[in-house]
Design a protein around this nucleic acid. Structure first.
Length: 269
DNA sequence: CGAAAAACCTGGCAGC
DNA sequence: TGCTGCCAGGTTTTTC
């Protein structure tokens, strides 16, 4: 899935649908991570979008009564088209139809989800989420306090959405590389000063990625379907055996929690 | 309890 | 051209 920058990019691309009315919706295939509510089409009909926001890797549409909670999983995307456009792609699960436009939710791997809820804050997917990485509250002291009590690896700690949201597999590797911290290190050995560097680099990496519209990888399309945005230049992810930009040593790849981790053994200690 | 592994899926690509 | 096996931006659920 898109990580935070890709979700943010998607969110921004659809944000001017705020205030618009969804005339009708269509569930072509309800099978996602969880089945789409069987009442979806009857609820999402002639409803005004009061607000659209991003929380963690979720995009939330607020209607008068319900909220629609949308997650893109690993391979989900939204695309905007004209209402009259009948182009249908495989894995187009749900369509939101407006006066002139249409937003289509596509997800080949079905790891994404769409929920309707009347009590958003109490929703099981939302209620245990940690703080936003770009929030001021995410600082060195906060991170250090979590690290102290955890002997899991620092990489898995920053990817745990209960601690801080939005950091996925790519940006975890990138941030740790920038901070020169070995991803395999136990969190409780990370010093306050290192937390400071790491927090700074997490924010930097995410902000830079948002600025260029997310990382272009094969499963991610911008919401308007255009493929032509700039690519976030990855410094370590996916570069196994290639030269480290810092020291010319070869980048290593290890598997951590069933996920690929890339790092430089020489620069990251 | 916390941490690790399995599970949920499809598609693309390398190698034979 | 197939076929097989492996890999992929996530995170809940199950197991140890």
């Amino acid at each position: 899935m898109p990580e935070l920058p890709e979700v943010e990019t998607t969110f921004r691309a659809i944000s001017d649908f705020k205030g618009k009315i969804i005339k009708s919706s269509k569930v072509n295939n309800p099978n996602l991570r969880w089945k789409v509510d069987s009442n979806f089409e009857s609820i999402v009909k002639d409803v005004r979008i009061e607000d659209i926001e991003r929380r963690a890797k979720y995009i939330i549409f607020s209607f008068k009564k319900y909220s629609m909670l949308l997650h893109l999983g690993m391979s989900g995307s939204l695309r905007i088209s004209d209402k009259s456009d009948n182009y249908f792609k495989k894995h187009d699960h749900v369509e939101l139809i407006f006066n002139n436009k249409k937003i289509t939710y596509n997800d080949p791997r079905r790891f994404g989800s769409i929920h309707l809820t009347e009590k958003l804050d109490a929703h099981f997917l939302i209620k245990n989420l940690g703080i936003e990485p770009l929030d001021k509250k995410f600082d060195a002291v906060y991170l250090n306090n979590i690290c102290k009590n955890s002997k899991t690896s620092i990489k898995s700690l920053i990817m745990n959405q209960k601690n801080v949201v939005g950091i996925g597999n790519i940006y975890a590797s990138e941030s740790l590389y920038m901070a020169k911290i070995n991803p395999l290190r136990s969190a409780n050995n990370i010093e306050l000063s290192e937390c400071k560097t790491l927090v700074k680099n997490i924010k930097d990496v995410l902000k830079r990625a948002i600025k260029v519209g997310g990382t272009t990888l094969k499963d991610f399309y911008s919401a308007d379907g255009s493929a032509g945005y700039f690519k976030f230049k990855l410094k370590v992810y996916g570069r196994e055996n290639e030269k480290c930009f810092g020291c010319n040593e070869k980048i290593s790849k290890v598997v951590q929690n069933q996920r690929a981790t890339y790092y430089c053994k020489s620069c990251q200690s």
